[in-house]
Every structure is written in structure tokens, then in C-alpha cells.
Amino acid sequence: MTLLCPLTQPPCYAVIFASLQGDDLAGYDAMAERMATLAAQQPGYLGVDSARTTDGPGITVSYWADEAALLAWKTVAQHALAQKLGKERWYSHYTLRVAKVERQYEGPEGR
């Protein structure tokens, strides 16, 4: 689990990927590790927050400097392969949302 990603000041973009794992997870952990490494090498990548329960539900939020950076990540060939395998094998369901982060607060004291 990775939480509390240090971000630069907003605005930035967040790609929110919520998923339920399927039954065939062969190769999943290795691919997830590879995608984390590869994403971190992309121009405009700011970081990631990720959590998964032991019974499968998970959420990963990646942060990007601008929309062009996240669209470029979508076209990386190895990422496209991971998406294909996810759809075919690893996820029984997923939801992906893209949001623009306008503000950020940290705490516990907050704003």
C-alpha cells in the first residue's frame, strides 16, 4: 500500500482506478510493479496513492502535471498491454475516472 503521495502544488490531474480482482492473477504483481516503475519515468508523472484489501477491491490514484502527460501515458505500449491483460484476466470489474485537482490540504490540522 502506498499512501500520502507528495504532490507539487495543484492544479494537476488525477487518474482514479478502482478495481475488483478476478480469479486469474498470474503475473499481476510483476506487471503492477513494472507499471509503477514505468509510470514514474514518464514526463509529467507526479506520483501515486494505492491501496488494496486482502479480498480484492483496490484503488490506485496516479497524479499527472497536465492532461497531455496522462494521455501520453495511456499510449505507452507496455501500459496498453497491461490494460489488455487487466480486461482479459485480472479484473472482474473496474472504473476509471479522470479528475482535475484544484486544491490540496494536508493534516491532521487541515487548512
Rank of each mutant, 00 (worst) to 15 (best):
A69G: 07
R103V: 06
T95N: 04
T2C: 04
Y63W: 10
A36P: 02
K87L: 07
Q41S: 15
A51R: 00
L25P: 06
Q78P: 05
Q9S: 15
T8W: 01
D24N: 14
V61W: 10
R111Y: 01
L4T: 04
P43M: 08
T8G: 07
A77Y: 03
W90L: 10
A68Y: 05
Y63F: 15
A36Q: 10
Q9E: 14
P57N: 02
P11S: 10
K100A: 11
G58T: 08
L70F: 15
A77H: 09
E106F: 07
A26H: 07
G86C: 03
V98M: 10
G58R: 06
P10M: 08
F17S: 08
P57T: 01
W73R: 07
G27S: 07
R89C: 10
L70E: 07
A65S: 14
A80Y: 00
Y94V: 04
G86P: 09
G86T: 05
S62C: 06
S62R: 11
A80H: 04
A51L: 14
V98L: 10
M1G: 13
L85M: 12
A99P: 10
V61K: 05
S19F: 11
A65W: 03
M35R: 02
H93M: 03
G44I: 01
Q21W: 04
D23R: 08
H93F: 05
A40C: 05
T75G: 00
L4D: 14
S50M: 06
I59K: 01
Q78R: 03
Q83I: 15
L3M: 12
Y94G: 01
E106V: 10
K100D: 00
V101W: 12
R89Y: 14
V61I: 15
T95W: 01
R89M: 08
T95C: 07
E106L: 13
V15N: 03
P57K: 06
G22R: 09
T95M: 09
G22W: 10
V48D: 02
E33A: 14
E67Y: 10
A69F: 06
K84D: 15
A77R: 11
A82C: 13
Q9C: 05
L81N: 05
L85Q: 15
Q104Y: 03
L3H: 04
R34Q: 15
C12V: 08
Q9V: 06
S62T: 15
P57D: 03
E109N: 08
E106H: 12
L71F: 14
Q78G: 01
A32V: 07
V98W: 00
L70C: 08
M1L: 09
K74C: 04
I16S: 06
A14I: 05
E67T: 08
